[in-house]
Design a binder for these strands. Structure first.
Lengths: 220, 220
DNA sequence: CCGCATCCGTTTCGATACTG
DNA sequence: CAGTATCGAAACGGATGCGG
């Protein structure tokens, strides 16, 4: 493990950067915000990072107590990485940074967009009417299943599928990102095969319509 | 200017890191949070960064619209770097990151601690009684003067000195950091020369006592 | 002195190949 | 699937030089 160099700065910001300031570290943390992930999941979500860098960051983050390596119960049996309690507490800072970064131009193609990224954005911007009846969805992205719950004026997201969803949607992160804030395109996406829906499609429409995009004024 | 490599990630977090994710970039931004600084001020606050790295980060941050280079009005005539409006909006994210980082162990000596770092911490943690009468202080740190105002339940900090302060204090960032939350040590610091005070010292005591240190429980 | 630019040894990153 | 090994390219860190 490449003993990460320290800034030697006693300020909290410098100390935080000693832990998550190395290249790719915060993106690894981002991928774990919605739940445990396997090594290959992380690699798939961060194709720009080579495997040894991912390995280094995971070891460093584990050594600093940000993440934990855990073996799943037998039938699965594989290893996953998950945030520790302290690791999870970085979420507000990361989301604030992400909100600030929305006003940075999207880098030239090719760009990647992980399922976790889109779902974090969906959860952050969704403002369902608190008086609405709760609704549950199964969402398939990148060969991973997610459960999206809309209730009590907010959206929560968990890994895995739930038994009796109001609707199910299978698509890719980029299409979902387009649909967020442009719910009208759902029918087109369903027609041309970019998305596949099942169950109460009008509930899906409602979910997408509840997303309020941030203003994104000029950078001043 | 080393055209900073992009993560190629369309997520807001990735785009933010394309701009402020390079080494030292966020610490440069931190140093500018309380006002414009000259190149040499930044070098003094970040002694671990070599001059070419500081130059690179400044150029990159300027190119991305986070900071701006400005010439002071004559007699001063020197150049300063300051945050743009957009750059200033990263402050909440940075402070959140810094709060999270307080639970990282302080790196082994030698460590640095800039005046800006301590003042950001003071401003963040100070909780003066809103019913108290406003008070103003001149604070000398690292050969720079700051004005500290306590009013309306919060502390504000500006660069430069004000004409009629209730008290003045000259010390170094590390001593001030010690005094924060340990106001009782002020008298000792004044006796042994680590600090020099003038004016209403009891008002200084009050200012220091208004700082409420965060809990800092274990990292779990 | 201030604000860099240049040079150079060291470290890290990024890409690919390879192993249990 | 989950990493390790290797190696060239790039970035960093420290020192020095230099024009204004």
């Amino acid at each position: 493990m490449p003993t990460s160099r320290s800034y030697g700065d006693a300020c909290g910001i410098g100390r935080a950067l000693d832990v998550v300031g190395e290249r790719w570290a915060l993106l690894v943390v981002r991928e774990l915000l919605l739940g445990p992930q396997r090594f290959s999941d992380l690699r798939g979500a961060l194709p720009g990072a080579s495997s040894n860098v991912v390995t280094d960051r995971l070891h460093e983050l584990e050594g600093h107590g940000v993440i934990r390596r855990r073996k799943l119960v037998p039938p699965a049996g594989s290893w996953v990485y998950e945030l520790t309690e302290w690791g999870r507490e970085i979420e507000p800072a990361l989301l604030a940074l992400g909100g600030w970064g929305l006003r940075v131009g999207v880098p030239g193609p090719p760009t990647t967009l992980s399922g976790t990224s889109v779902l974090l954005f969906l959860r952050r911007c969704a403002q369902p009417d608190p008086s609405n009846a709760p609704s549950v969805f199964n969402l398939g992205l990148d060969d991973r299943m997610w459960t999206v719950r809309s209730a009590d004026g907010r959206v929560t997201i968990t890994i895995g599928e739930c038994p009796h969803p109001h609707a199910s949607l299978r698509t890719d992160p980029r299409t979902l990102n387009t649909l967020i804030g442009h719910p009208a395109e759902l029918n087109a996406a369903l027609s041309d095969g970019r998305a596949l829906a099942d169950g109460d499609v009008s509930a899906l429409h409602r979910l997408l319509r509840d997303v309020v995009l941030p203003p994104l004024d000029g950078k001043g």
